[in-house]
Design a protein around this nucleic acid. Structure first.
Lengths: 196, 196
DNA sequence: ACCTGAACACCGTTCAAGT
DNA sequence: ACCTGAACACCGTTCAAGT
């Protein structure tokens, strides 16, 4: 799974690795979906326990978010599993930790439901996007080439029709992934706290 | 595509519908991915033009977001295409509109890049989640049964280990999808404006 | 230039037959 | 109770052969 990704893991290769038949695996898991979700829960349990820390609740939320970001960066297949709907157990584990910290931070209880799910969508979306982009850039040269090309494409767009996209092309080229990601978490936290 | 979803559209069924061979389609599109992205761009172009309106920029952003939410609700395959990485042309069209409105709204230029991508991740994540949940609930009885069961499951969790999840179980049961979605947009906009 | 459709190289999943 | 692995029912994609 870690070596060849989600499509690399087939019941045939897995059976060969376990020195058994493909059908035998169905005596232990119902189907491929369950297999992947089980793997995801196992990884996330560790990540959440290791990253839910910091001197303040706010720091703990950023730390949790970065923990997921880094885990998905290292294992792109994980991002796909966490973003499934309805949210699987692994994702609910992250939501639980985020919510507890948000509550302790003083986010009004009326905004906790919306706030935490906003945080979760942002974390999963940004982590997935980052992981896939990184996969693409190792294929097609290095990250900077990839960003340069994307940025150049944006700058070549129509100045009227795509004014905003052009205006952020420079930032796209020079941004640091983890820093921008953290800034996003801070922005959402700001919204949650000022919504009182 | 609209009738049977993404997996329902195969080159064989499409060829049968067009009274031709499966291979012939490859003379018009490179592969299935390109086919789906083309369909997505076509739909989103219309949606964006129809929903980018309101008396204020803030209202226009909410209207845009709801436009995408509703479009994905009606066509779940669209959500999958918009959430692809790197963001396809159709998604960039949404980002452009959101960014232009955010800029006009007075969001500091330093936070526009982070703010608009936060908004985009939230919109795509929430719209997809909603669409898939709705698909599940039409299969397994109606929406309320689905929410009741999920809510009951959450309330049955361990009170210590899952304190937060339990605390939002009630809201999960009673929430209105579009209202909660709008509230999330407002929360992010609040964060973008107070980040000055 | 475009179409045809059999063939290729796969999948996840099932199931009769074994141990 | 568990394993085996051929078979089933599909995919997206390719390509020699046609028009």
């Amino acid at each position: 799974l870690d070596a060849d990704g989600e499509t690399g893991l087939t019941f045939r290769t897995l059976a060969a690795r376990l020195d058994t038949g493909a059908g035998a695996i169905y005596h232990h898991v119902a189907n491929k979906s369950e297999l992947l979700l089980t793997a995801a829960l196992q990884v996330v349990t560790v990540v959440v326990n290791e990253s839910d820390r910091g001197d303040t609740d706010r720091e703990a939320i950023v730390s949790l978010a970065l923990g997921i970001f880094d885990a998905v960066d290292a294992r792109p297949w994980l991002g796909t599993q966490l973003a499934r709907a309805p949210w699987p157990e692994a994702t609910m584990l992250v939501v639980e930790r985020l919510g507890r910290r948000a509550s302790a931070l003083g986010v009004p209880s009326a905004t906790q439901f919306v706030g935490v799910s906003t945080l979760a969508y942002y974390i999963l979306g940004a982590a997935n996007q980052n992981a896939i982009n990184r996969g693409l850039s190792t294929d097609l040269g290095d990250r900077q080439d990839f960003l340069d090309e994307m940025s150049a494409q944006w700058e070549a767009l129509d100045p009227v029709e795509h004014a905003f996209t052009r205006s952020i092309a420079g930032q796209m080229r020079e941004h640091d992934d983890r820093e921008v990601f953290s800034a996003g978490i801070d922005l959402i936290l700001g919204g949650m706290l000022s919504a009182a």
